[in-house]
Computed example of a mutant assay.
Amino acid sequence: MFRDARAEAGDDWQPRVWVSRSVLPLIDDETRRYFGLRAQVDSKNQFGHLDGGLARFGRSFICEPDVIAVELAADAAVQAADTVLVTVPNQLGVEFNARILEAIVMDIAPSLN
């Protein structure tokens, strides 16, 4: 809709569009221990307060990498985007996040092309 509206307004420049997704692949016992139960709540859109106003938070993708790959491939916003910004929790340190990001790059991202 964004791109169509720009074209209708006569704008011939095509901007890049990105979306953000929280992706937590369950790849081992440690990731299941940290995030497995959270998947039951965070797998749905949520509402909360941000900067004093009501905000909608999109779901988190928390499950096995092959399931996440299928779900992201079916996500219309992901498919229409030029860039997908992946967010992961940073509290667990560099080594933990490197494992998570490796799983995203190796097991999930190839199916999104």
Rank of each mutant, 00 (worst) to 15 (best):
M1L: 09
F2R: 10
R3Q: 11
D4T: 08
A5Q: 08
R6G: 06
R6H: 10
A7H: 10
E8Y: 09
A9Q: 14
A9W: 07
G10D: 13
D12W: 10
R16N: 08
R16D: 12
V17L: 14
R21E: 02
R21C: 02
S22W: 13
V23K: 01
L24W: 04
L26R: 06
L26F: 04
I27W: 01
D28Y: 07
D28N: 13
D29V: 07
T31Q: 01
Y34D: 02
Y34S: 03
L37W: 10
R38G: 15
Q40F: 12
V41G: 04
S43N: 10
Q46S: 14
F47Y: 10
G48D: 04
G48C: 05
H49T: 14
L50R: 08
L50H: 05
G52H: 04
G52Y: 04
A55H: 10
R56H: 15
R56K: 13
F57K: 06
S60G: 11
S60Q: 14
I62M: 04
I62F: 01
E64G: 02
P65C: 06
P65K: 04
A69N: 05
V70D: 15
V70C: 07
E71V: 06
L72K: 02
A74L: 09
D75P: 02
A76G: 07
A77L: 14
V78K: 05
Q79W: 11
A81M: 06
V84C: 03
V86F: 07
T87D: 12
V88H: 00
V88T: 06
V88M: 04
N90C: 15
L92M: 10
G93Y: 01
A98E: 03
R99W: 00
I100T: 03
L101Q: 07
E102D: 14
A103G: 03
I104E: 00
M106C: 13
I108C: 07
P110Y: 02
